[in-house]
Computed example of a mutant assay.
Amino acid sequence: MTQRSTPAPVSTTGLRRQPRQARSQERVRRILEAAEALFVAEGVASTTTNAIAAHAGVPIGSLYQFFPDKAAILRSLARGYGEQLHRELAAFEESEASALPLDAYIEAMVSLTDRFFTSHPGYQAIFNEAQSATADLLAIEEEADVRLVADWSAALIARVGAEGCVLSEDDARTMAYVLVKTVGNLLWLSLAKAPPFRAQLLQETVQLAVAYLRRRMTTGRGPGEAASG
């Protein structure tokens, strides 16, 4: 699978010191880009802060001015990715989403998310290793999922409201959680598959999500409740 190189996302949340001057901002950007490149090439576990500093061309002391440890670099990258994906989903919701029927809407959402995964190898490098679980990586993964659940929950409430129905916040959050975990895991699995099966898996993911949403959004009931009539 061919992957497009993209700049490392920058999130300054949680930095030891905020980069206020242009020179400091450029240094943080170089550190994050170096970390991303090494995480992709060597893996998160094998990458050290010394290697990141060397690859970025900055003294190790300068790295520690902004990032107390490798986990802080991971969090900054992960939050940057999360913010970028959030912006892309929000832009989609504000532009064409409301005009699409449910099938096309879900297919577009799945395609957007899949494109984000495939075009950001650094995102894959971080979250693939979350499966082998350090506490920091698991916390980062959960933080990213919480953001995605909030995005999908708001989108579901808006879509149902546009159709003249009401969806409670609790129901929307539960449905969004199911979608994020189901769609996300299937998309991750698809990344390692050969192109023909990968394309089929994406279509199956869309059909699964559509069938689930159609039932929940038309009945307004949980899986254990019978529809009236």
Rank of each mutant, 00 (worst) to 15 (best):
E83S: 11
K193M: 14
Q84D: 15
Q21I: 00
Q200Y: 14
S5Y: 06
A139V: 11
A97N: 02
G80P: 02
I60Q: 12
T219F: 12
T218Y: 07
M217L: 15
T13N: 09
V44F: 04
S98W: 00
R159S: 01
R221D: 06
Y64Q: 04
L137E: 03
A8E: 06
E36T: 12
A71P: 01
S76H: 03
T49D: 08
L15G: 03
M109R: 04
L201E: 13
H86N: 02
F127P: 00
A8Y: 10
P59H: 15
P59T: 02
E36S: 13
I60S: 10
F127C: 04
T6L: 09
R16P: 07
P7N: 11
E93A: 13
S98L: 02
V166Q: 15
T2G: 00
Q25C: 10
L208Q: 10
T13G: 07
I31Y: 08
G57I: 03
G229Y: 14
T48Q: 06
D136V: 15
L167V: 02
R29K: 13
R173M: 05
E94K: 06
A99D: 01
V166N: 13
K193G: 08
A104Q: 04
E163Y: 04
Q21N: 15
F127W: 03
A130C: 14
L137M: 06
R79G: 09
G82I: 11
G122C: 05
F116M: 05
A192L: 12
A37Q: 13
Q84E: 13
Q203C: 10
S111F: 03
F197A: 06
L100M: 07
A54S: 02
H120N: 15
R30P: 11
T174Q: 11
T12F: 09
